Computed example of a mutant assay.
Amino acid sequence: MLKKMVIFGLLILLVMVAAGCGGTAKAPDTAKAPETIKIGVTGPISGEWALEGQGFVKAVRLLADQVNAKGGVLGRQIEIVEGDDKGDPKEAALVAQKMVAGKVTAVLGSYNSSATEPASQIYDEAKILHITPSSTATKLTEKGYKMFFRTCFLDNRQGLFVAEFITGTLGKKQVALIHDNTTYAKGLADWTQKFLEERGATVVFNDAITPKEKDFTPTLTKLKGLNPEVIYFTGYFSEGGLLARQAKELGIKAVFMAGDANNNPDFVTNAGLDAANGVFITTLPMAQDLPYNEAKQFVADYKAKYGKDPESIWALTEADAFRVVVEAIEKTQSTDSAKLAEYLHTQLKDFPGITGPITFDEKGDRKGAVHVAYQINEKGEFVLYKK
């Protein structure tokens, strides 16, 4: 019995020695890959404004893929977290709560001011950096939120441009303003009225339509009797195109104009080529008219990846929002939102954006303003207006 035990022990010893000498046994690999840096992208990814929200996602994913291919930021990959708020304020609040729970470093969105407004409060309370590319309502940065920024320009600046364009470039004095009572549209209408009246123009009408309605003939019939020289619509393209169509059908001779939320190919679809022809759209310069090398490179990369140019200027301002977040992370060597916001407020100067140099003021608003007018031609193309 003792002999058998000795032999068994020697066998075990030999197996252990062989395993050690063979070099095939490895200690378990317990090293983990660094955690990703989560950046939220929110907007109307579905619904009537889906073209805008999907453009946000495409733009940011393109840039995130490029950054990740080069090793990421701070040795970490960027993870994009999508949030579909459908352009609805209640949905936007729910999406914001999910982003907070998901511990994102920053959020880029939303599209419309009415959705951005409730979300901005949630992000500010959670101390999460929040940058909107397209919510232009002036009052959004009058709340004192330290975490809120935007890469677009404000309604008051667009209103000033519109007033100067109508009274100066077009030489018109009788103006009708139509809005839809949303935060953005009513704000733009009121600012435009202020600057028009300061320039001696008369606002013969400033009232709202109901969003999502299809028949605006009662409002337009009332307008027709006031004999405006210009109609300026400050709402969104869904209704803007229909207004242009129905104004044409009613024989209204006034010049039809619309604000930057109508800088969208669906405006032409809704209006029809005949009614869209000659309409003026006031907006930021579109991709093809931006002179910056960053814009040319982004558009080329976007087309190479998706087979077409960006369909909206807001995809480019969303891309700029992503780029300034990455810049802040790199410069601060941190993903702490408070440090990133402090950097954007105090140190980011003339950052070479796709849409031009970017500097933020103490409120988080982008300094400066660049607005232009496009006139839609008989082919439905938006052509930069030069008088």
Rank of each mutant, 00 (worst) to 15 (best):
F149M: 01
T141E: 00
A92Y: 01
Y145C: 02
A93P: 04
C152D: 04
I78W: 14
G75E: 01
A137V: 13
K70N: 11
S110H: 12
A119K: 00
T132R: 02
L129Q: 06
Q174G: 10
D124Q: 04
R150L: 14
C152I: 03
S134W: 01
Y145P: 06
P118K: 00
E164T: 09
V100S: 10
K127H: 13
N68H: 13
K58Y: 06
V107D: 01
Q158N: 03
F161D: 05
S114M: 09
F153K: 05
M99S: 04
K58L: 04
N112W: 05
K58A: 06
L170G: 10
A96P: 15
A119W: 00
T167I: 08
V175S: 02
A176F: 01
I166Y: 15
C152H: 07
T132P: 02
K90S: 05
V175I: 10
K146W: 15
G109H: 04
T167C: 05
S135R: 01
D65V: 15
A163Q: 13
K139N: 14
V162P: 14
D180C: 09
K86S: 06
L177F: 08
P89R: 02
S135F: 07
N181Q: 11
T183F: 05
K70W: 13
K86V: 02
A92M: 00
H130N: 15
G71V: 08
Y123Q: 02
Q77H: 09
E117D: 15
G168V: 13
T136D: 07
V73H: 13
K103T: 11
I178M: 02
V175P: 03
E79D: 11
K139V: 15
A101E: 08
L94D: 12
Y111T: 03
F153I: 12
G75K: 03
I122L: 07
T151C: 04
G159R: 06
Q66Y: 06
H179E: 11
K173Y: 12
L108G: 01
M99D: 02
M99R: 00
D84R: 08
